[in-house]
Write a protein that binds this DNA or RNA. Sequence first.
DNA 1: TTGTACGCGTTATCAT
DNA 2: ATGATAACGCGTACAA
Lengths: 347, 347
Amino acid sequence: MARATISDVAAAAGVSQATVSRALRGSANVSPATRAKVEQAAESLNFTLSKSASTLASGRTMRVLLLVSGPLNTWFNASVLQGVYDVLAPEGYDTIPAFVTNREQLDRFFRDLPRDRNADAIIITSFEFDTALHDQLSALGMPVVGLNSPSTAGFDASIGIDNAAAITSGVQLLRSLGHRRIAFVHDYIPHDMVYGTSTRVAAFRTAAAQAGYGDDDIVMIGADHHDTTPAMLDVTAAGIVARLLSCEQHPTGIMGETDEFTAAVYKELRRQHLAAPRDFSIMGFDDAPVSRTLDLTTLHQNPVELGNAAARKVLALLRGEAPEQTHELVPATLVLRETTGRAPNGR
Amino acid sequence: MARATISDVAAAAGVSQATVSRALRGSANVSPATRAKVEQAAESLNFTLSKSASTLASGRTMRVLLLVSGPLNTWFNASVLQGVYDVLAPEGYDTIPAFVTNREQLDRFFRDLPRDRNADAIIITSFEFDTALHDQLSALGMPVVGLNSPSTAGFDASIGIDNAAAITSGVQLLRSLGHRRIAFVHDYIPHDMVYGTSTRVAAFRTAAAQAGYGDDDIVMIGADHHDTTPAMLDVTAAGIVARLLSCEQHPTGIMGETDEFTAAVYKELRRQHLAAPRDFSIMGFDDAPVSRTLDLTTLHQNPVELGNAAARKVLALLRGEAPEQTHELVPATLVLRETTGRAPNGR
DNA sequence: TTGTACGCGTTATCAT
DNA sequence: ATGATAACGCGTACAA
């Protein structure tokens, strides 16, 4: 059985192709009677419109790209995908995930994007762009919405959490608990600056200074490579803890860039027979599931909702409307759990 | 600047459209000289082939659907997606994720799939199908590959882990450690049987029986609802632990259906001042990152590699070849960590 | 409200 | 190896 085409349906319903097209897409100017006839004919012929043919004829692809930084199987990226999918799918849009791992891939991605005509819009998450890239964004010729991008330049709309404010509240928590020396532990920061990892690092620096910590009271320790395999994470964490504990007078307040990373550091700390909050305080960032299972104090964000919001902005832009809020900054709120408490005596 | 079309390139290169098409797709029968001319013309006009137009003309969409059971933001599903993407993207295929949460959505999905002509193949993960669905699969009219599906019926190819063998090895571990009574804790099993959650439950039952456990020595405890939010997970786990500990003589060997679920149960157990492996042994399934952070004994599987393999089978099928192995069953291997040990005395 | 007819940008068939 | 041309299946002015 060859596939039914729109003209088969037209013939079966006794109307023209154009009317079938209008009826099936819920367009106006179709009488209820004809619409019913057409729908029935389509149903009995087991027919739906071909997305590719529609795309070719209309110019709309009904697809939106989701470009994430790094692998798709992290809690954050997967949750954003879920959130985007949730609002796009009911509207008939496909969500096409993509990711790049280095600057070269990113450049090629942006170069091919506009001419491929394979998507109507793009959502870009967690990228740290230099100005050259902002120009590329504008040249894309389609709506571009940013998610947790440090700058709004080049984006038609964006949503993100207020990293700076969140980290400030974290720093202030540690200070109010009496921690005289504090540390920030973070992932590897690649030189080509594709990833957005440095926003929180910078935020910690300034927050600590503002809270009155001197340069000697702050220690920043980053991973020295970018191998994210679980096994390597433990090794990385071990190295970080070694550096942490070998400070002349080691920090007792620790903030981590993400919950996953913090969990590894925390684990190594326990392996050294140190306990939180007895011997130190430690807090993560994200409120990922692992922070719950560890009762880790953290800063809450909801990537599913960020994805929802980004997708809604895309939809508005695609309709030619302005999003309710063009550039939105939502707070990440402190969640107190069991790993933070008063600084140990004498520190 | 209007977009360049294939005929613009043809004109610029001084050849016909047909030749441009052949040259740009790396087809045979194009002289190196013309190919170079064409490529250069395309480059200078900033041209690439339109996927939609190609699809319409050729019938190939260069897209494959990935249907997962449940949300995309679980470790397993996100990892499968990553694995599929990794092998499909270099070949020029888009990976389109989709998921359904109940039987009705699933039926509609399958009904619309063949007539939408929006994908060349489909990968289906972790679904428990009844026979009616197997027929629908065959009627899809495109390659269908299964991933961790309990049966191979209806699939053109499949890959999955050997749940039964893995669970048997887990049960035997507990028995060899001296646990006289054992329990299996698992997620909610919906009545419409869309999810594949029952495979491991059934496997545990038979493995326990074969290992010599009597009916009174086995306790199965499932969640009584399907709310997977992190906060509810803790509540669910609390209920399960309550039931576990209020048994006449409670089991000391516990297996969980997944690491995530097991982690929640384990946490509640610790909250009751019970410690593993001192008071009980507990093991998970999957070797998800959380099992590492908890040093949880578990059964290892690698969903990224499963995704890779499934995608490779799709590619083979699409080329009209037979996959290297049509139906593949890979072992899930026991990973001994810190939460299992000899049964407490007197039990 | 409905129909006519053209165009969307390729691929594929058949010549040459 | 290359060129002409007919599909591919739909959207959309424009006309009726």
